[in-house]
């Protein structure tokens, strides 16, 4: 079984960190992963997309997947090419603090969950961790990875010179995990 998760936002929103965090957590759950990032030359404002594949077996999917089971939409600006990748079984977590509803599909045809990720992260005192709130919320709905693995990856994904951010990032993931119940289980059995 394989689950594809696509991430999109603009540079500086933490898109790549969110994708890496989820990938590390999936590995801790003993799943195979493949992660491809695509981002523009700008540090802020350019596109930042990521394509993550989580699988029970070897992965043959291309780096940029054609279809996706889940999406984390941090910003609408570059989301246009991702919406068509989502199907009837898909779930999209949308950063409703930022994303313009007018830039979302009118009739999505998939499960669209609005999460005020930036507002929540700002309340926590760490607005730069909004992407992790969104990923936490996505995991809360899907069990894509186990909660423990996700929380632990907050620290393991960071380089040593960013270690001081681990606690705030973990809190952001936890805040996301606290939002709601599993409505959209990713796997038949939860990883142990």
């Amino acid at each position: 079984m394989q689950r594809e998760v696509v991430f999109t936002g603009i540079g500086g929103q933490g898109v790549q960190l969110a994708a890496r965090t989820l990938a590390e957590a999936a590995m801790a759950d003993r799943r195979r992963v493949q992660l491809f990032a695509s981002y523009g030359g700008m540090m802020r404002g350019g596109n930042s997309d990521s394509f993550l594949v989580i699988s029970d077996g070897p992965i043959t999917a291309p780096p940029v997947v054609g279809s996706a089971w889940a999406a984390a939409i941090l910003h609408h600006e570059h989301a246009g090419e991702l919406w068509p990748k989502l199907g009837a079984e898909s779930i999209a977590a949308v950063n409703s603090s930022v994303v313009d509803p007018a830039r979302c599909p009118v009739e999505p045809g998939f499960d669209l969950v609005e999460i005020p990720a930036l507002d929540i992260a700002t309340e926590l005192g760490s607005p730069v961790a909004a992407s992790l709130v969104l990923v936490g919320a996505l995991v809360a709905r899907t069990n894509l990875v186990s909660a423990d693995a996700l929380l632990d990856s907050a620290a393991s994904v960071l380089p040593s010179y960013r270690a001081s951010a681990a606690a705030a990032n973990r809190a952001a993931l936890q805040a996301g995990l606290d939002l709601g119940e599993v409505t959209h289980p990713a796997w038949d059995l939860v990883a142990t």
């Binding site: 890496r20 990938a23 590995m27 195979r32 992963v33 493949q34 992660l35 491809f36 990032a37 992965i59 291309p62 780096p63």
Partner: peptide, 9 residues
């Protein structure tokens, strides 16, 4: 580029 920058476990 894809081979260089695709991350895998």
């Amino acid at each position: 580029y894809y081979l260089a920058h695709t991350w895998v476990d």
